[in-house]
């Protein structure tokens, strides 16, 4: 009889023992046989020393029944819920692993959208301020030089003066819009930071 035949002969006679326990038992004897052969014994000697595989299996069954009196009749009842809970845990872990790139992608997308809006508002604000400055300076220059235009006639002076007032008014309007944009940006930042801190508080 080879060691493989011996082990399978033992396995055949381990009826009534739960699968996991059976695997552990056979692993133990497989390892023992290999180690004995490694230490110099021949395969036949090792098998002979272990004795009749049917008797060994019977001894193992007896031992198992003695150590597990409540489990010998039916499969261990406490194993089922344990298995289920560990299964759920595994499922959750798998879901998290699969889902995490998705969650990350969504966070990145939302962050980049908010960032884009902020940049756009800043750009509009800067544009308006620069525009306002340009218009304002032109208006002031026109206002100051309108007296020089008196030489070109009273009506020319009047048109230039009116134009200068118009430009200054436009400048003030643009400044208002720019300031409004910056205020809008501040409001947005505050809203986002409030949302984040609220989420954090909920998590804690």
């Amino acid at each position: 009889m080879t060691k493989y035949e011996y082990i399978s002969e033992v396995e055949k006679n381990l009826g009534g023992i739960p699968y996991i326990e059976k695997v552990k038992m056979l692993d133990f004897y497989r390892e023992m046989i290999e180690d004995k052969i490694e230490s110099g014994m021949s395969e036949e000697e090792v098998i002979a020393e272990l004795g009749d595989p049917v008797l060994l299996a019977a001894r193992l069954r007896d031992e198992y029944r003695m150590n597990n009196p409540e489990q010998s009749a039916s499969p261990p009842p406490n194993q089922m819920p344990q298995k289920r809970s560990s299964g759920w845990k595994a499922l959750l872990v798998i879901a998290l692993i699969i889902g995490s790139p998705l969650i990350l992608a969504v966070i990145v997308a939302v962050a980049s959208i908010l960032f884009g809006i902020a940049i756009a508002i800043i750009a509009v604000g800067i544009t308006f301020v620069i525009g306002a400055a340009g218009v304002g300076i032109t208006g002031i220059v026109l206002f100051l030089t309108s007296f020089l235009a008196l030489s070109g006639g009273f009506y020319t002076f009047l048109v230039q003066l009116g134009l200068s007032f118009l430009l200054i008014a436009l400048c003030l309007l643009l400044v208002g819009v720019g300031v409004g944009a910056i205020q809008l940006l501040m409001l947005l930042i505050r809203a986002v930071s409030n949302a984040i801190s609220a989420r954090k508080r909920k998590a804690v």
Binding site: F28, E31, M32, K36, L50, E63
Partner: peptide
């Protein structure tokens, strides 16, 4: 230590077979 080594070590003091060791380790 591992199964075979434990048997060899214990057997220097007390006679012990592998079929005795298995339930002991399990317990």
């Amino acid at each position: 230590s591992y199964g075979y080594q434990i048997i060899s070590d214990v057997s220097r003091g007390v006679a012990m077979s592998e079929s005795t060791l298995y339930p002991i380790l399990k317990r």
